[in-house]
Design a protein around this nucleic acid. Structure first.
Length: 568
RNA sequence: UCCCGGGUCGUCUAAGGGCAGGACAACAGGCUUUGGACCUGUGAAUGGUGGUUCGAAUCCACCCCCGGGAACCA
């Protein structure tokens, strides 16, 4: 996973100030050259592309140092939100992205005992106390941005009393809200986080791992830095919204003799155009059934992207290219799509499928005859192999590839026009058959038998090449056409009226149930990715079976024709 | 009104006193049995005002704009 450090030549990889800083630390011999990072999700939901960036940053940072490692730690300190289901999904997603945390899987909940001991220690040293004010009183006492806070009347309570109360909190003597443990720092600090932050609260809730062993739970601000320190983390890398917690983070770890003492660094979280990334909003989409679930292929979740047909390599490549900095940004989703196409182009077998079939009859092609054609799975890589296609008298072509009254520069099918059936032959359209309503239902053509394979013996140029499938050999399939979930670059822009769901793209999913596939597509299993020539990249959906193949469109090919025709 | 971050092509990012570079996107052309891929080319930026300097995106001052911050969430 280690990437070359040079970033001047070609600038293939965008800069990463975290990498730079870690390299400097290694150069200075800090921590004996050791680098330990961690990815610390709370198991309260599914991971999304923003997490993917954080995962990449943490794992690639650890890879800079020889022997460096990245831990997977579940920050499960709030039993109300967390579930084992999410733990498993997170493991699967990180692994799928291509990262390996080895034996270094941890849970903050594993540290509850040690965390408690450290808290007791802090109380004994006069650095923490039990506060018995109500939640409202604590809130009021904290002051605000402009007013300093005031000390709690319990702030100077004796160490013995705090210790006794804390022990009682732990054994369940008190109701929720009766007491909290607070760090004794500075109620007048300009940094509101330093105004005696709460370390423990009473919650009589069953934890997904520790069950009912505990009824007090540590707050993130206490548990997180301590957990990092317990694990020997050197560089605790997180997103910018935690920057305000950095002084507090340092306060906690500096009161113990940790070696190494971890330090926190922040980078800007990922934002993408046409995408919402907040867990809360994603949850709404699922609950309101705007999408089929967390793994709906339109979701920016790792699970959704996987189902959609994204490759781990594309996501990692994307993460490298956007760089790591401290400035707020909204990355063009086109950059993600570019990374996707780049990988898919290199790795996907080419196949043919007709999404909206139109029958084409080759009148001068003998009934019942079949011509075998060898068609490579890749235009430039022989290792992909090839398959046999059968040209028959009746084939299906794409409705969109026929225009009764062609516009300027139309190279595809039209009355009197000659096109190439890819890999097969040249055909000329002679007649258009319509139903009573005037809809085109069939094309009558003739072919040039001399053009078998696709080239005319006289060397005449035929610009148009279209895909097709043999009517006799075609497999029926369902194809789900996915597009961007939102039709607005920034669905959350405050300038908008109404709800972000108003900006959902009504055409984000179109299901085609009468698609026709070439036979090689019938037996591919869930997760397999192919290109349908001229259409895009598609992946087999988990709903698929040999009896009823289902393909998801991952992404369309770049389409310079539609761009050009739109301009006119 | 307070504290902390941050402002470079449309977007993401280099350069950190000495030619503002790259990638995506856009545009133009070439090539092509995918209107794909590939190749070539073009246009496109230092938030503002002063100052220091031979020279400022870079240093200084002031201003403006954007993001985050006052859970017993993470």
């Amino acid at each position: 996973m280690t990437e070359p450090k040079g970033k001047t030549e070609g600038q293939e990889n965008a800069p990463n100030f975290i990498h730079d800083l870690v390299e400097a630390d290694i150069g200075d011999g800090k921590h004996g050259g050791q680098v330990v990072t961690r990815f610390p999700p709370e198991p309260n939901g599914y991971l999304h592309i923003g997490h993917a960036k954080a995962i990449c940053v943490n794992f690639t940072t650890a890879d800079i140092a020889a022997g460096g490692r990245c831990h997977l730690r579940f920050d499960d300190t709030n039993p109300e939100a967390e579930e084992t289901e999410y733990v498993e999904a997170i493991r699967e997603d990180v692994r799928w992205l291509g990262f390996d945390w080895g034996s270094h899987e941890y849970f903050a909940s594993n540290y509850f005992e040690r965390l408690y001991d450290c808290a007791v220690d802090l109380v004994k040293r006069g650095l923490a106390y039990v506060d018995s004010q109500t939640l409202e009183e604590i809130r009021a006492g904290r002051g605000d941005f402009y007013k300093p806070g005031v000390n709690s009347p319990f702030r100077e309570r004796s160490t013995e009393e705090s210790l006794a109360l804390l022990a009682g909190m732990r054994t369940g003597e008190f109701d929720e809200g009766a007491h909290v443990l607070r760090a004794k720092i500075d109620m007048a600090s300009k940094d509101v986080n330093l105004r005696d932050p709460v370390m423990y609260r009473i919650r009589k809730v069953t934890h997904h791992r520790t069950g009912d062993d505990w009824c007090i739970y540590p707050m993130y601000d206490y548990a997180h830095p301590m957990s990092d320190a317990f694990e020997g983390v050197t560089h605790s890398v997180c997103t910018l919204e935690f920057a305000h917690h950095n002084p507090l983070y340092q306060w906690f770890v500096s009161h113990f003799d940790f070696d190494p003492t971890p330090r926190q660094y922040e980078f800007a979280r990922l934002n993408l155009t046409y995408t919402v990334m907040s867990k809360r909003l994603l949850k709404r989409l699922v609950e309101e059934e705007r999408v089929s679930g967390w793994d709906d292929p339109r979701m920016p979740t790792i699970a959704g992207m996987r189902r959609r047909g994204y490759t781990p390599a594309a996501i990692r490549r994307f993460a490298e290219r956007i760089g790591v900095s401290r400035r707020d940004s909204i990355v063009d989703v086109g950059l993600l799509e570019h990374a996707l196409r780049e990988d898919l182009n290199a790795t996907s077998p080419r196949t043919m499928a007709v999404l909206r079939p139109l029958k084409l009859v080759i009148e001068n092609f003998p009934e019942g005859e079949e011509i075998e054609l060898d068609a490579p799975f890749s235009p430039n890589d022989e290792s992909f192999g090839s398959r046999t296609l059968h040209l028959t008298r009746e084939v299906f072509v794409e409705r969109d590839d026929f225009m009764e009254e062609p516009v300027k520069k139309w190279f595809r099918l039209a009355p009197g026009k000659e096109v190439r059936l890819r890999y097969a032959a040249l055909v000329t359209c002679n007649e258009v058959i319509k139903d009573d309503a005037g809809n085109v239902i069939e094309l009558r053509c003739t072919w040039d038998p001399e053009s078998k394979g696709g080239n005319a013996p006289d060397g005449r140029k035929v610009r148009g090449t279209i895909h097709w499938v043999s009517a006799k050999h075609a497999i029926d399939a369902e194809v789900r056409l996915y597009d961007r979930l939102f039709n607005d670059e920034n669905p959350l822009d405050e300038a908008h009226e109404g709800d972000f769901t108003d900006r959902i793209n009504p055409a984000s999913l179109e299901v085609l149930r009468a698609a026709k596939l070439e036979p090689s597509l019938a037996t591919r299993g869930p997760g397999e990715r192919v290109q349908f020539e001229r259409l895009g990249y598609f992946a087999v959906d988990p709903d698929s079976s040999p009896a009823g193949p289902v393909y998801n469109r991952t992404i369309q090919l770049r389409d310079s024709w539609s761009k050009q025709s739109k301009k006119k």
